[in-house]
Write a protein that binds this DNA or RNA. Structure first.
Lengths: 210, 210
DNA sequence: CTTTCTCCTAGACCGTCGGTCGATAGGACT
DNA sequence: AGTCCTATCGACCGACGGTCTAGGAGAAAG
């Protein structure tokens, strides 16, 4: 039987289903047929909306990055919070640990989902480096940060945060996390050139997440 | 027709061919048939030696990591070189830019080779963190480094080095490299807590590579 | 109400993939 | 010459990503 839906709705249905599957099972492990089963459409319909499986992945990655970017921007706008706090919160708002439904939290970085993660990382770095440019420059002017290469420092911090807390690239044990978070904040202080201990406030914020 | 070879030789033939293909074309883009064609064996023979395609990948990754580890260890042993230099050279010896044939140099990080890279990164970090543990501790005792979390600093430096110079995750333009290298060394200084400008010596060493 | 036209849907079909398996050739040893 | 084991072969399998064409739904025109 044939059911007709408005174009944009169908597209979104496919994206939603694919996103859940890609995150839960991994991109390579998800077949187009898996997606078809959930959305309840035929293969022709899928390929009417997307030229390939990887085009769906690209669209999803851009969505995820854009959601993070919007979160970051709305945090950075709020002048009632100290600049340093705003910047750190914007960075932390990129870590999927904090967002999304509970099930996805656990699964997103466990699986061999390297393709999704790499694409995400690339786009996220590009977008967030651009967003953080202005506030960091502001922080330098205010004398909060003491760095010579602001862009590269941002890149490094974003990269470290992602690789350590999203990717599980180090295979850390749960009991090691508190120390790893301390070490991370210590290193971020060095990379930003803040006063020592300036980021200690964020220890408990991180503590809550895991 | 059937040609019989000694077991270990056949295994190595497969590994060599697969390694070149995986690096040149990417893991996913290389089919088992591609490997068979080069080694000139039948599929059954391939699966007689390896249980799966990904088992070949694992073996190759371990090989590459072990080669890097051996390079690092032989550098670290040489007491005639100052400790800081030895450590930096050991880290740099992990960057594939420096090793391998010229063609591979260019291709290794270009392609969508996320699976190989992720596995490599994981194993390299594990192995190199362990190798660098002792020299870094020594450096702290000598007062060259001033850090509270040595293990995590090493992890961060190795990670940054790999992601920036191996993975091309930032899509840097060639003309940006000199500045990126400066910024990287600046940040490594911060992460190690050395005296400022202590790593300037390495600018030209890096400069040669790209 | 009927015709027409376009947008969307369906699913059979294709080539390729990673992986399996039974048959058998090669060489060493009796 | 016969036995045995190991290494080799390639036909075969199901599943995959992707193609193609036939045709149904629904709005617009008569």
């Amino acid at each position: 039987m044939k059911t007709v839906k408005e174009s944009e709705i169908r597209r979104q249905e496919i994206l939603v289903a694919a996103r859940e599957l890609f995150i839960k099972k991994g991109y390579e492990q998800t077949s187009v047929n898996d997606i078809l089963k959930i959305v309840d459409i035929a293969k022709g319909t899928f390929y009417y909306y997307f030229a390939s499986k990887s085009e769906v992945l690209d669209a999803i990655v851009l969505d995820i990055v854009e959601e993070g970017a919007r979160r970051a921007e709305s945090i950075l706008i709020d002048k009632s919070i100290p600049l340093l706090n705003r910047i750190m919160m914007a960075i932390m708002a990129q870590v999927p640990e904090f967002e999304g439904t509970d099930e996805i939290k656990v699964e997103i970085h466990k699986v061999e989902n390297t393709k999704l993660e790499r694409l995400y990382l690339r786009e996220m770095l590009k977008r967030m480096t651009q967003i953080l440019q202005k506030p960091i420059t502001e922080g330098i002017e205010l004398g909060i940060f003491h760095i010579e290469y602001p862009t590269e420092s941002i890149e490094s911090i974003l990269l470290l945060g992602h690789m350590m807390f999203d990717c599980d690239v180090f295979h850390w044990k749960v009991e090691d996390y508190p120390m790893k978070i301390k070490a991370f904040l210590f290193n971020v202080e060095k990379l930003l050139g803040t006063k020592e201990g300036e980021l200690d406030v964020f220890l408990k914020m991180f503590g809550q997440m895991k």
